[in-house]
Design a protein around this nucleic acid. Structure first.
Length: 592
DNA sequence: GCCGTTTTCGGCCCGACTGTTTTCAGTCG
């Protein structure tokens, strides 16, 4: 059920999530763009939407405590609109702004390559209907009705088709932190009930996959019926779909369904194992069990005598099958069962192993915090170092002399900060562009001024495999480039991985002794786990970076560690688990 | 529409890329 339906049917007043609020603000941005509103006013709404998306608290909670204006980019006017939204469920001003525009245009916004103007023109000329605009557009693209419209040719039609098919496939999946936050709140709620002995998230969320379909929760309890009843009274639930003796299903205001499964504590391990999956991992286990004359289910292991043996923990469950405990992140049937049988599972890296962060941004480029603020937070996390890697300044507009003096100024500031800390160092790095013509955006004479250089692709994503591979390998061969940042450039649910010859990339990376980054931003998680596992076979080392653009982003490093675990990395595979002294050697940093 | 050590008015990034044009508009970061 979608939000609109919930309001229509007069259920509990929906608690607007930040995601929903940001979407509403972006619709106003698009409407204003089509109507030719003042561009600074448009930017103000755009800034507000970004601010809501990045907020670490629910905007509705801020509103309730009267602190909504503390959010950057929310001034008196937008605060008033949101106040109206929370009180009445709608905003008259928003309705007026959108008046006269085809409603279908707002449903296709956000499809890559379709901005406000294109959304408007497509919705209008193709008569995209409210409620089925995406499906209508997909049909039009398939039957070649988009090409020929003003501004659209064959290439854009094909791009629209591909992007729509991709988003269609992914649209119901959540990012890891979104799912994690939903689960965290429910788990906190369940923990308040004394009859709940253990509680865990299940499925792909527990395995830490890049996107999560459903949030399912397991509880160990001796009073399942009471716990299920308590679950259905969860304050953010708008509907109960199922309230049985041992299981329950509720619907949140966002429309998400949450399932609860319960089990007696003495059999909890089997439940947890069964619903953590993955499906293929469990199939493999069942085949193994059959070969031993056993049979698996969510209730336990049925032995040859026909008796079901129960397990309170997963460790005991795996042990009964002759296996070492397999961490959830590895349960994808990629050989982990055999490794567990041979007692040779890798010793996986943990968040506590991380000693510093090598990609972060400040107000010098597109970050929101100052160098001092970022350094203080990193130090506060117990790190030994923080690499500041702001984007380059434009060589064309600034000129080399101005840039050189800017680098010098930054170095002086960094030295000043470093002298104020004990056992903590800020590094002066840079994230440079691998341009479409495969040159780097700075000449070597500038690159050599930095402690280390991250190279990244930010444009020309659609080039063919040969050109993309050449761009990356050329960058890796530059003597000053140390780290290839977010190598595949994917944006989860929005942009696919670039088409590179990864084996060739990994070979060059190994030969040139360069580092691959694992970017921890939840919409990147780049490298993806499978490529990490592949790259590790070449003996390549990795850096797990937050790519922080604000102080709180430094905490996102844990998602990078999750991906690294899924890619089977140990502490020794990751350079930012090293002490500062060792890291300096690896990155060949002089001074500091 | 937001914001302020330049604080109630007057600024607010713009360059790169792409596909579509035949000099540019839309999108993205």
């Amino acid at each position: 059920m979608i939000l609109g339906d919930i309001l229509k049917t007069g259920m509990k007043l929906a608690k607007f999530s930040n995601e929903v609020i940001a979407k509403k603000l972006r619709e106003i941005v698009a409407a204003y763009e089509v109507k030719g509103e003042d561009r600074f006013k448009i930017r103000a709404y755009d800034n507000a939407a970004t601010s809501v998306e990045h907020a670490t608290e629910e905007v509705r909670d801020l509103w309730e405590s009267g602190k909504i204006k503390e959010l950057a980019g929310i001034g008196p006017a937008i605060a008033d609109h949101l106040d109206e939204l929370f009180r009445t469920g709608r905003v008259k001003h928003f309705d007026e702004v959108k008046k006269g525009l085809p409603e279908g245009m707002f449903e296709i916004l956000g499809t890559p390559g379709i901005g406000a103007k294109n959304a408007y023109s497509l919705a209008k000329t193709l008569h995209l209907r409210k409620g089925s605009a995406k499906a209508d557009l997909l049909r039009a693209a398939r039957s070649g009705k988009i090409r020929g419209r003003p501004g659209f040719g064959e290439v854009s039609e094909k791009a629209i088709l591909e992007n729509l098919e991709k988003t269609k496939k992914d649209e119901n999946r959540m990012s890891l932190p979104v799912a994690g936050e939903i689960a965290r709140k429910i788990i906190d709620y369940l923990k308040k009930n004394p009859k709940v002995i253990h509680v865990d998230a299940l499925g792909s969320l527990r395995r830490g996959t890049a996107t999560v379909g459903d949030v399912d929760i397991a509880v160990a309890t001796s009073n399942p019926k009471d716990v299920v009843a308590y679950f259905t009274r969860y304050p953010e639930a708008v509907e109960t779909l199922n309230e049985g003796d041992v299981k329950g299903r509720i619907v949140l205001s966002s429309g998400r369904q949450i399932d609860l499964m319960t089990q007696k504590p003495e059999a909890y391990g089997s439940l947890l194992q069964h619903f953590t999956g993955s499906k293929n991992h469990n199939i493999h286990l069942r085949e193994l069990a059959i070969s031993k004359g056993l049979s698996l289910s969510e209730y336990g292991i049925r032995n040859k005598a026909g008796r079901v043996e129960r397990f309170s923990t997963e460790e005991d469950f795996y042990k009964r099958l002759g296996l070492d405990y397999i961490p959830p992140e590895l349960r994808e049937d990629r050989g982990e069962v055999d490794l567990a049988a041979k007692h040779s599972l890798p010793d996986l890296i943990e968040v506590g192993d991380i000693k510093g962060d090598l990609q972060s941004h400040t107000v010098w480029s597109d970050g929101r915090a100052t160098l001092e603020e970022m350094a203080a937070r990193a130090k506060g996390k117990g790190y030994e170092y923080l690499g500041i890697t702001d984007h380059q300044l434009s060589l064309e507009t600034k000129g080399i002399t101005a840039i050189r003096s800017e680098i010098k100024r930054r170095n002086e500031l960094i030295e000043q900060i470093n002298s104020s800390y004990k056992n903590f160092r800020v590094l002066n790095g840079i994230e440079i562009l691998i341009k479409a013509d495969r040159d780097l955006s700075y000449p070597d004479e500038l690159l050599q001024e930095f402690d280390y250089v991250l190279a990244a692709i930010h444009t020309g994503f659609n080039q063919d495999k040969v050109r993309i591979t050449q761009r990356i390998t050329a960058a890796l061969r530059n003597p000053f480039v140390k780290i290839l940042a977010h190598p595949t450039t994917r944006l989860i649910g929005r942009r696919d991985v670039i088409d590179a010859d990864w084996e060739e990339v990994f070979r060059v990376c190994r030969d040139e002794d360069k580092i691959l980054e694992i970017d921890a931003l939840p919409d990147r998680l780049d490298l993806p786990d499978i490529l990490i596992q592949e790259a590790k076979k070449y003996g390549i080392k990795f850096a797990i970076d937050s790519d922080a653009h604000a102080v709180e982003h430094l905490d996102l490093i844990s998602y990078g560690v999750t991906v690294a675990r899924r890619g089977r990395l140990s502490k020794s595979d990751v350079i930012n688990t090293l002490s500062f002294g060792k890291l300096k050697e690896v990155l060949k940093i002089k001074g500091r």
